[in-house]
Every structure is written in C-alpha cells, then in structure tokens.
Amino acid sequence: MSGSEAGSNAGPEPPRPLGAEAEAEAEAAAEAGGLALYRLNVDGFLRTVSGAWLGDSLLTVLRDRLGVTAVKDACEQGRCGACSVLIDGRLAASCTVLAADADGTRVVTVAGLGASGLARAIQARFLSEGAVQCGFCTPGFVVAVTELLTRRPDADDQEIREALAGNLCRCTGYGRIVAAIRAVQQERGILPIGGEDDVEWHP
C-alpha cells in the first residue's frame, strides 16, 4: 500500500491568491469596517468576498457580489431548487447555505459543469427533447441531473423522480425532463434502445 493514499482523505486547502501580508492587510481593513472577508472557490476560480453581510446566503453572494447569474434566485427557502449548486460534489440549494461557511469548499454552478461531456450532453438533450420552456429552472435541473447521472448512470424512472423532487418546474410537467434524461442514458448506451420509460433495468 503506497503512503500517498494515507493523506488523501483530507482535501487540499484551495490555494490563496494573496500574499500573507496583503491578506492580513485586507482582513484588517475589512474588520475595521465591520465587514466579512472570505474566499469562495467558484467553478474552479478563487473569488474574494468582502463587505458581505454575515447572514448572506451563498446564493446572494454568488449573484449580487460575484455576478454569477448562472444560479437562479426564486424561493430563498430551499424549496424550489432553482439555486442548486454542487458543494464538494454534493447537490445543495445555495439559498440554504451560509456564504461565509462555504469558505474552504468547492462550489460548482451550472457554468462550471461545462468541461464535463455529461453536462454538455444533458444540456443538448434538454433542448432537443423540449425540457426547456421558460428556462428559469433549467440551470438548477442541469446541476441536479448531472449529479444524479454521475452517481447513478442507470437511474430508473423512480430514482430520477426521487432525485429531482427538490427542483420545481412550472412549465413542462416534468415529462419532457424525464424524457431528456432517458435520452441521455440511451445515447450513452445505458438504457436499451427502444426501452420504455417504465422498463426495469438490471445491469
């Protein structure tokens, strides 16, 4: 057993862009003004947040301070899923996460999924299968579906519906969204060609 595996359970701290002195200076300045200063790793970029209110959610900071509009703001109660992001790979509603507490985690929005072929395939199928109507819920759905198919590529109909229960769509009635996911699975050779939606799939 190689020794390198032993230390791999604790993820490395994201690199700090500022020198220690500059950092201390900025912190002192921020604290003198009674303002929060922390860093967020958003879609692979380290962003410094200063002047935010202590109680600000990750959603508010992403949109209003960092200009990340790929995250949508709807209910702010953790009910609709429009603001879904991945935090250290886990699906979360960014409106229920305290921004200052996300310092030290990796936050991925729909914009940060781009490099993955899976996310691109999901977005293409959402368009071709008519799963996008007004489009407001789509960023949250794409994040949730990418997380689901990464974890369970062969998710069946019930698993899909269970996993997406936290994302509301008021246009499609969900049928086209499930169809888009089935199409992605079919395209990737996971669902048998011509398979019905309710087909039991035994890998």
């Binding site: 953790g78 009910r79 899923g81 879904s84 935090i87 886990r90 699906l91 979360a92 509603a93 229920t96 996460v97 949730a144 269970e162 996993a163 997406l164 229960a165 936290g166 994302n167």
Partner: peptide
Amino acid sequence: VGSAQIRNT
C-alpha cells in the same frame, strides 16, 4: 426528509 438538496445539507 425534504429534497435531495435538503438531505445533503
């Protein structure tokens, strides 16, 4: 409990 988002958090 709630949704996947809530259960994860």
